[in-house]
Amino acid sequence: MNYAELLTPVHQFLLCRTPQAWIDKAKEPANLPVLLQDHLLCELKAAQTAMLLLRKYAVDKEGSLALLEWLKPFEDFAYRFIGDATSLRNSVKLSRNLAGRPDVSYSNEIIEKMVLLIREELHHFYQVLEIMQARGVPYTNISAGRYAKGLISACKTHEPQILVDKLICGALIEARSCERFAALAEVVDAELGQFYLSLLRSEARHFEDYLTLAQQISTTDIQPRLQHFLQIEAELIQSPDADFKFHSGSPI
């Protein structure tokens, strides 16, 4: 499958494309460091989101501890500046098979999709860090933009709807990431462009995995909630945004 075919369902899903003003700003060499730093943290946050779903809804206490151990070296690096690329490359992997909780009917479905997603996101975290180091881009723990917060703040607060809403938000974030990988690939240097295209190939199915889980868990059709969040997402992407980040809106 070529990249155009991979992008077709992403473009059909999202309500808008990335504004040209964002692309113009992203291709300025001076803005590459912040893009790479924010992208690095986005990969970690994607893994954390999937892990929270696993720990809250799918695995037992032993499985939860194994997941925390898996993520710890990456969080230590990102938030406490402990470790480096070498230590992350040799960090502890998931040390056991995870068993679904018998009291949660959809636990095995969450495990199947989210463990693979976490593995890929952490690998991409390491790849972005390697690129940063090769280009002399220092790592700093920059502040989060408004995008994810703007989506999550619209989630319901009761179960199971909060889980369904968070899965929908996960789908939107993954789809927008893929759309931006493709947009960036056309305006950055060839080496970085190939990297973004490789991420698109790896992550293109993630948004569909989230949507599938959301519909499996929901007791009703998710389309009304999905349309609600799609509108919020499009507004976040198209409206003026003073903070330039990987998922930010139209630059002021």
Rank of each mutant, 00 (worst) to 15 (best):
M51K: 09
P29I: 07
V34Q: 13
Y79K: 04
E121C: 15
G63I: 09
A46E: 13
R89C: 06
L68M: 09
L88M: 08
E69G: 01
C42Y: 02
I111L: 05
T49V: 01
A99K: 14
A78I: 08
L94Q: 01
A85L: 15
A21E: 15
D76H: 06
V10K: 03
L98F: 09
Y126F: 15
D38P: 10
Y79V: 01
T49F: 08
L67C: 04
Y106K: 10
A21N: 12
L14Y: 06
E62Q: 14
L94T: 03
T18H: 01
Y57T: 00
H39D: 07
L65K: 13
I82Q: 06
A30M: 10
P33G: 12
I118K: 02
M114V: 03
C42A: 12
T18W: 05
F125D: 09
A46D: 09
A50P: 00
V59H: 02
A30R: 13
P9E: 07
A30K: 15
W70F: 14
I118L: 11
E43D: 12
G83K: 11
L65P: 02
Q20R: 14
R96D: 03
G83Q: 03
P29N: 05
S107Y: 01
F13N: 01
L116A: 11
I82W: 00
L32N: 04
C16P: 00
M114T: 01
H123R: 11
F13L: 07
D76Y: 11
W70G: 02
P33Y: 11
R80F: 15
A99D: 11
F81S: 15
C42I: 06
K27F: 02
L122T: 07
R101T: 01
K45C: 01
Y57P: 02
C42W: 03
N31Y: 09
L44M: 05
V92D: 06
F81K: 14
L98Y: 05
W22D: 06
